[in-house]
Amino acid sequence: MQRRGVKRTLLPLALLAGLGLSACTTGAAAGGGDAPADGELSLAGKTIGVAVVSTQTFWDREAFQGAVDEVERLGGVVVPTDGNRDNTLHAENHDIFLSQQVDAVITILGDDSVEPKLEAISEAGIPVFGVDRASEHVVNNAQSNSTEAGEAIASIMGEQLGGEGKVAVFNAFSETLTFCGERYNSWKDKMTADYPDVELLTPELAEEFANAPEDARQQTLTLLERYPEGELDAIHVACWDQPAIGVVQALEEAGRTEVKVTAIDAGPDTLEIMMEPDSPFVGNVAQQPREIGKVSADNVAKHLAGEDVEAESFVETYPVDGAAGAEEVYAKLGYDKQ
């Protein structure tokens, strides 16, 4: 098993030079996958822009690659951009799609700085599809059910705590990213309703986006000074799980592994941490980001073929409860074969 702190790239990426500002094309014209059979969806002759805020984390890479691979499999050509974990750059990258007059755009993550770009693209007659990017300007948003994920992780945390204890929360993005807000609000509502003896500590913590694990590690060390042993029972990362890597590191450094950690996303890196002996990381919710990207590309093909597409598409998630649950989901999602 690969240990934490060792970053692995599971899949080759069609990335851009110059921090994502230079456009390139991949796809059927450049040696893409097998063309679809007669009667299947097709993007033959279509050029699709695929913009992702980052390819530095597993979720982001997988969602991006899932969209790229499916566009290529359906015979389309991809114009990819990578925001390099910079939301402003991610937004600016969408100008490439307007200048090249692509046939459709898949936009992956990002904050509201991208909204004016999506509006301009839509007004130019280019349909936009979101991956975890809710917007009035998208035809469809492919995603996990964030409300269900929040409720699932609340149940895991509540049971892991035996229904009582004090919980600190990392919650940087619930007011700026729709899916983060849904995860946080559903988690908090269920914790409050079903586990009234669990105290949610205030003020909440806010992790940085660009360097989340290290920032969360440092904030956790400070938090542990404020709450000595016996005064803090758990830490929850409300929106994603990359900060949880740093939280676990801080707990181990401080000898405070009695404090339990929960989060949402559960890629192979964080599942591996959960599987380590006596890991404080006890709860997570696994998504299928590659499948979400694929669904988005399929929705593009349906729309361009004149089919009706629902406003939202949901891909199944898997609650992860403890080390045994991590092992089960790790195998179920095929990470043990990579």
Rank of each mutant, 00 (worst) to 15 (best):
I264Y: 01
I245E: 15
N185V: 11
G267E: 01
S144E: 11
I121N: 02
D298A: 07
R73K: 08
M191F: 01
L118I: 08
H303D: 09
L98S: 09
D103F: 01
M1D: 14
E229W: 02
I106C: 03
K166H: 07
A28G: 08
V68R: 04
L333H: 07
K302E: 08
K188P: 02
A51C: 12
L177V: 11
K190W: 04
P319E: 06
I292H: 03
Y184M: 07
I264F: 01
D82H: 00
T222V: 13
G283L: 05
M275Y: 00
F58M: 12
S174K: 09
G334T: 03
E92I: 12
V309Y: 00
N84E: 15
Q249V: 12
K302L: 05
F97S: 09
G165E: 05
S279T: 09
Y335S: 10
P12D: 09
L201R: 02
Y330K: 07
N93G: 12
G306N: 03
P280M: 10
T9A: 13
E72V: 03
T270G: 09
Q101K: 15
L271S: 04
N140K: 08
R73L: 01
K302D: 05
G20S: 02
G18P: 02
E276C: 07
P319R: 00
V53L: 13
V261Q: 11
S42M: 08
E175F: 07
E253Q: 14
V295K: 10
A30T: 13
S144Q: 14
V285R: 00
W59M: 12
A216P: 01
R8K: 15
T57D: 13
I273L: 11
L224Q: 05
A28F: 02
K188R: 10
Q288C: 07
D103P: 06
V285G: 02
V295M: 10
A149R: 06
F170D: 00
L177Q: 08
T55G: 14
L224W: 01
C239S: 12
G76C: 05
G125L: 07
G39Q: 09
P268W: 08
A67K: 07
N145A: 09
E151T: 08
G27F: 03
M191K: 02
G165Q: 04
S146I: 05
E312R: 14
P280R: 11
D60G: 12
L224S: 05
A206I: 04
L43W: 04
G130K: 03
D111V: 10
N284M: 03
E70L: 05
P228L: 08
G325W: 00
E182D: 13
E204N: 03
V128I: 09
L161S: 06
S146K: 04
D265A: 10
A134K: 14
T317E: 05
E148M: 06
F170H: 04
G125K: 09
C24V: 15
K46P: 01
V6Y: 12
N93Q: 11
Q65L: 11
N84V: 15
D60R: 15
W240M: 15
L118S: 08
D278H: 03
V131R: 07
K188T: 03
E119D: 12
V77Y: 04
V139P: 04
N299D: 10
T57Q: 13
A263Y: 07
N145D: 13
S113I: 12
E276K: 13
E136T: 10
A29E: 15
G325I: 00
L224T: 08
G322D: 07
P319Y: 04
G110V: 06
A305M: 08
M275F: 02
